[in-house]
């Protein structure tokens, strides 16, 4: 099994890792220590003090607050909700549901017909980061994408102590 230095993992996070090492990561069996190194690299990047429990997106994390609660949080510090809830329900949304709004982002004919499909852009209410773009039909429920089993992951998959969580 290959292993990588903390510096290499930090470069991976920044998108600045050399291709040779990236290629090795792709082609060799996975390094089980990656998760720990990854979270450490991210922890150094974020401005908040809360402990990262699980990264969800480039600017989105499940963190442990000082009250030991697990919440979904933007890297600007904005707290969305309890980690078990769908953070999108607490976001701000802009729906591209007209041809005019679609042609703001794609040339004529290269975007969907809004009678069939719309783009829903979910922003952080504080910093305006675009956390997700859904592309469903009108009427489609807001999708709760991901419900991780964090306890099983820490305990059984990466052999790390589960961060404390207030009931």
């Amino acid at each position: 099994m290959s292993t990588y230095t903390n510096e290499q993992v930090a470069h991976l996070v920044e998108g600045t890792l050399d291709w040779e090492t990236t290629f090795r990561m792709l082609s060799m069996p996975k390094d089980n220590s990656r998760f720990k190194q990854y979270v450490e690299a991210l922890q150094k990047k974020v401005s908040f003090k809360d402990r990262i429990v699980l990264p969800l997106g480039p600017h989105l994390y499940i963190v442990q607050t000082d009250r030991k609660q697990w919440v979904t949080k933007c890297d600007c510090g904005h707290e969305f909700c309890d980690y078990r809830e769908n953070w999108k329900m607490h976001a701000h949304i802009y729906v591209r549901d007209t041809e005019e709004a679609m042609t703001e982002v794609y040339p004529k004919l290269m975007a969907p017909d809004t009678q069939w499909q719309v783009y829903r852009e979910y922003y952080c209410p504080s910093c305006g980061a675009l956390h997700d773009v859904e592309a469903p039909t009108p009427w489609y429920p807001v999708i709760h994408d991901f419900e991780p089993d964090i306890e099983a992951f820490y305990k059984e998959w990466v052999n790390l102590p589960v961060p404390e969580r207030a009931a």
Partner: peptide, 19 residues
């Protein structure tokens, strides 16, 4: 053409549709 089957990920946009 009228729709896109391929969404973007984590803030990325879907690819362009056909015409």
């Amino acid at each position: 053409g009228f729709m896109n089957s391929d969404w973007g990920l984590m803030g990325g946009y879907p690819s362009a549709t056909g015409y």
